[in-house]
Amino acid sequence: MTAATAATRADVAPAVPPSRAGGPHPDVRVVRRRLGPGPRTRLSFWVGPLLLLAVWAVGSWAGFISPAVLTAPWDVAKEFQNQWVDHDLLGNIGTSLRRSVLGLTLGVLGGVVLAVASGLSRVGEALIDGPIQIKRSIPTLALIPLFVAWFGIGESMKVTTIALITLIPIYVNTHNALRGIDGRYAELAETLDVGRVEFVRNVVLPGALPGFLLGLRFAVTVSLLGLVVVEQFNSESGIGHVMTLAQQYGQTSVIVVGLVIYGVFGFLADTAVRLIERRALSWRRTLEG
Rank of each mutant, 00 (worst) to 15 (best):
A208R: 03
I128F: 15
N176Q: 13
G238C: 02
V58S: 07
I134F: 08
L209N: 03
A57H: 07
I255R: 01
E231F: 01
V204L: 09
G240P: 10
V257L: 00
A219F: 07
L245C: 02
P131M: 15
V113N: 00
E79F: 03
I162Y: 00
S96I: 04
V76R: 02
I255C: 02
I65M: 04
V112H: 06
W56R: 02
E125L: 01
I168R: 13
I132F: 06
I239D: 02
G183H: 12
G289Q: 15
S19Q: 15
T41L: 14
G180F: 01
V76C: 04
W283M: 05
S223D: 06
G124A: 10
I138K: 04
L213H: 06
M157Q: 13
V229N: 10
R284Q: 09
E125S: 13
E198M: 09
V256P: 01
L141H: 07
M243K: 04
L188G: 11
K158R: 12
M157V: 08
E198L: 10
Q251A: 12
G59P: 04
P14L: 11
L120V: 13
L224M: 15
E190Q: 11
P17K: 13
V101G: 01
L268F: 09
S96C: 05
L192R: 11
G94M: 13
V264Y: 06
A163Q: 12
G183F: 05
G103D: 01
V200H: 08
R278D: 15
V113A: 06
Y249G: 07
R274Q: 10
T95W: 01
P139L: 08
V204D: 14
R9L: 14
A177S: 15
A62Y: 13
V257G: 00
V222A: 00
D193H: 14
P39W: 06
V85N: 05
G183M: 07
R33W: 12
Q83F: 07
V254I: 14
G258K: 00
D193K: 12
S235K: 03
A57D: 07
A72E: 11
Q232R: 10
I65K: 03
L146V: 09
Q83V: 13
L224Y: 04
A10F: 14
S156M: 06
S100E: 01
A246G: 09
F147D: 03
L192N: 07
N173P: 06
Q247S: 09
I255K: 00
R20Y: 05
S121F: 08
R284Y: 14
E277P: 09
F64Q: 11
D27E: 08
L281C: 08
E125H: 12
R32W: 14
V254F: 02
L53K: 07
W46T: 13
I276L: 15
W84T: 06
I138E: 06
E79K: 10
R98S: 15
R136Q: 11
G38E: 06
L51P: 02
T160F: 03
A177V: 10
V123A: 09
I261E: 02
